[in-house]
Nucleic acid binder design. Sequence first.
DNA 1: GCTTGAACCTGTAGTTACTACAGGTGCCAT
DNA 2: ATGGCACCTGTAGTAACTACAGGTTCAAGC
Lengths: 154, 154
Amino acid sequence: MGDRRYPIGVLSRETGVNIETIRYYERIGVMPAPPRTEGRQRVYDEDHLKRLTFIRRGRELGFTLDQIRDLLGLVRGHGLTCAEVKAMTVGHVADIRRKVKDLKRLERVLGDLAAQCHGKGVPDCPILDALSATPGAMASRGMGNGAIAKSRRR
Amino acid sequence: MGDRRYPIGVLSRETGVNIETIRYYERIGVMPAPPRTEGRQRVYDEDHLKRLTFIRRGRELGFTLDQIRDLLGLVRGHGLTCAEVKAMTVGHVADIRRKVKDLKRLERVLGDLAAQCHGKGVPDCPILDALSATPGAMASRGMGNGAIAKSRRR
DNA sequence: GCTTGAACCTGTAGTTACTACAGGTGCCAT
DNA sequence: ATGGCACCTGTAGTAACTACAGGTTCAAGC
């Protein structure tokens, strides 16, 4: 419960999220509607700032808004049972681990490439292999990301 | 240079990328147009399969298509100088490190939450703090992610 | 060879997640 | 009071897909 109050422009600058995006998030329910001044201007507080930063970072990490909605639902448990919380966190944790693994591989390939690059011409870069997987691993994707949907079966 | 040949439906199933999405990627130039049969049907090979998997994973990791385009440009150097390659990789590596750091924090919070959850009611979850940062850290974001744009200055 | 149903094609339209703009009001420093 | 910037709502557009329509191709089965 912070005591600082912000208009939307300040919240936008502090969080790096566009004003229109903030209003969009409010419209779709990911951000709670804040209190207003008599002149209808939004007034945000520290909780809003934290929440919005979380949303932005989650998006940058590749989580869909629905996934972020799920995660935000864990803030106070929101009437979930412990079994529900556990099932949810297990799925998200598996997804996170896979992302970390992929990112590290990508980082390594890029690091190696930069290290080999000293004026003799650009070396071949095995970047495609950084995020490829064996057919088996490909088939077991764990919790899906809605952003890239599965092919329709016809 | 693989010798297997796939129609688009098989490529879609193997990579988990939707048929229409594959065509979209071809249209915007992220995937090269493959050869066709006499009947105008696309014929893909192993290189296409690798490239598409890379694109999918990059999207799931929160990279924009333009960032992915950049990264794919490193595959054969594509006429880049070593200085250009270095500048590019340094920026991407910094971004990747930040993502890894955030993901690990999120994983830890979720892991702790699940560990505390044993039937006595759902504990408070400090999930918002996992991806929040100090005002200073917020101001220095390194390579931006185009998906969440900055607020317009007016 | 013919039939049939699934896979493929192109093009158009819609959804999600933003992003920009227009026209108006509110706020605050001078 | 004035003026300029911040804010409002609503509409439209962009990025990144996703779905559908109407047509062609392909290949298995008879």
